[in-house]
Amino acid sequence: MALVASATMLAALGAAPAQAAEGAQRLTGPGTGDPDVFLTYVGCDALFGAAQPPQSRLNLGPYTSPLGRRSLGLVPASGGTASGPFTRFGSLAALDASVAVASTSGSTGVSYVMAITPDNVPGTAWRGRAALSAPAGSWTTVSTAATSYDWTLVDLATLASLGSSETATPAAFAAGHGDGAGFVVTGFGCDGSPFNIDAVRGAGRTFDWEGTALATGMSVDRTSVDAGQSVSLTGRVSDPGGRVTGDPLVLESRRPGGAWAPVGDLVVSGPGGLSRVDVPVTETTEFRWHRPESQYADEGWSDAVTVTVAEPAAAPEGASKK
Rank of each mutant, 00 (worst) to 15 (best):
A134V: 14
A134G: 02
A134W: 08
A134P: 06
P135G: 02
P135L: 08
A136N: 11
A136E: 11
A136L: 05
A136F: 07
G137D: 07
G137R: 12
G137A: 10
G137I: 05
S138L: 07
S138N: 10
S138T: 12
S138G: 11
S138R: 14
S138E: 03
W139L: 04
W139A: 06
W139C: 10
W139R: 01
W139G: 05
W139F: 07
T140N: 03
T140K: 08
T141F: 07
T141K: 14
V142M: 03
S143D: 07
S143C: 09
T144A: 13
T144M: 04
A145T: 03
A145R: 14
A145K: 08
A145G: 04
A145Y: 06
A145E: 01
A146F: 07
A146N: 08
T147L: 10
T147W: 05
S148P: 10
S148Q: 12
Y149E: 00
Y149S: 02
Y149L: 03
Y149P: 01
D150H: 06
D150A: 13
D150Q: 06
D150R: 09
D150E: 07
W151E: 01
W151M: 01
W151S: 00
W151Y: 09
T152P: 08
T152V: 15
T152A: 10
T152R: 14
T152Q: 15
L153V: 10
L153M: 09
L153H: 01
V154R: 12
V154S: 04
V154N: 06
V154K: 02
D155R: 10
D155C: 09
L156F: 01
L156R: 07
L156T: 12
A157R: 12
A157Y: 00
A157G: 07
A157T: 06
A157F: 04
A157H: 01
A157M: 02
T158W: 08
L159I: 01
L159P: 00
L159V: 05
L159W: 10
L159C: 02
L159T: 09
A160P: 10
A160D: 09
A160G: 14
A160R: 15
S161T: 12
S161W: 03
S161G: 15
S161C: 06
S161M: 05
L162W: 12
L162N: 05
L162A: 10
L162E: 04
L162D: 11
L162T: 06
L162I: 06
L162G: 13
G163E: 09
G163Y: 15
S164Y: 12
S164L: 15
S164Q: 15
S164R: 13
S165F: 04
S165V: 03
S165N: 00
S165A: 12
E166L: 11
E166Q: 10
E166N: 04
E166C: 04
T167D: 02
T167V: 13
